[in-house]
Design a protein around this nucleic acid. Structure first.
Lengths: 203, 203
DNA sequence: CTCGCCCTTGTACTTTGGTGCAATAGCCAG
DNA sequence: CTGGCTATTGCACCAAAGTACAAGGGCGAG
């Protein structure tokens, strides 16, 4: 598996060469045509944008991209993945780490730091949770009558009793009656708690 | 790198043995004590939950978990990652694929399908977008003073004036003063609108 | 038919929310 | 130092929210 380091100025760090002595070094300008299959390591110096570091498009068949970032963080890694990279690690990582990354990525795997993994999984889990929560958001509507649900939805969007009354063409007193019933059924204190409940935000 | 297949009934599929002839096979009941470092492949049969397939907790040091799912989908893979697995692939994957997965995971990489990668990256991009959108949720905090922001946050979580006063150790009148100022600065009518604004729900 | 639930409304009352006016005090910049 | 912003509070007042008690009519299950 051939490795290619691609840097703005075709400069290699010592740990790179120690890890992968057979790798070739290219300046960003020369990259493009001459590169065959293998792992392409792109160095992102401080302050450089992903867009200038990584080529446009996606890796060619047989190619795998890795971002070598001087200052990696979650957003950088995600952007790199989105841009087609199969991983991201610190430019100054130990040679052993680089060798492992080369092995993993070269075989089609992903390499991301543990913290990012947690972040992704946590974030995705959060998305799933939100989806799960908005499903039993029918929780409340199941407990309420048709009319009560209408009132509840209006309250949740910050309508006043007067406005609700006008909109449903009933008296303000009736709106209050519905609300009292709603609070009772859902165990809530006031319209603000109701709003949070309806909008899927735990109390 | 030792490989272990762990199935409910200690049954192996032919492609597993072809890919990793040196692997050992265990029934789920026997798993636990006898397993050393290496890659642990857990087979998830149709209808089985992740929780029953994968052990509780996280992998021991030197161990890497892979979920072999009969019917993998995005949610399954995410759940597996959240449960400590380093990857997930189809139970019936070709032997070459399994070998690659073993290599990647055994070296600390992640193995997820391309579709899931897109999903994660897309989802995370969505998260970032949400954060960016709620960054102009700094919109409100930028306009408010420190104290006002505290009050706003408390209101947004459905606290009453009395509760806020107690919590911030100021008089209820002061809370009201802050609120009036907040409404004025943000162009809002009442605490319910404030709550929606703070919680990132458009009016 | 009776019981329970829903929808409706009225009067009256308490509580909470929100504003106006005013005052004291600290901090910081011009 | 003076003006502006922030934080604090009091008193008074009005408006909105919420509750208690009561009562009418409709509708479906037993």
């Amino acid at each position: 598996m051939q490795n290619w380091f691609i840097d703005r100025q075709a400069a290699a760090l010592p740990n790179w060469l120690e890890a992968l002595p057979a790798a070739r070094l290219l300046a960003r300008a020369q990259a493009g045509a001459a590169i065959g299959p293998g792992v392409l390591w792109f160095r992102q110096r401080s302050g450089e944008a992903i867009a200038t570091t990584l080529p446009a498009g996606q890796p060619a068949a047989g190619q795998h991209w890795v971002l070598l970032s001087d200052e990696p963080d979650e957003k950088t890694v995600l952007a790199a993945l989105a841009a087609g990279a199969a991983g991201c690690c610190n430019s100054y990582a130990a040679p052993e780490v680089l060798q492992q990354v080369a092995l993993v990525v070269g075989n089609g795997g992903l390499w991301v730091g543990q913290s990012l993994l947690n972040w992704i999984v946590g974030g995705s889990a959060r998305i799933l949770e939100q989806q799960r929560q908005s499903a039993p958001a029918d929780d409340w509507s199941a407990l309420l009558s048709e009319r009560e649900s209408e009132v509840a939805r209006l309250v949740a969007s910050a309508a006043s009793n007067k406005e609700i009354a006008r909109q449903l063409d009933i008296s303000e007193r009736t709106v209050k009656a519905h609300l009292t019933s709603i609070f009772d059924k859902l165990g809530l204190r006031d319209r603000l708690q109701l709003s949070l409940r309806i909008n899927g935000l735990a109390l």
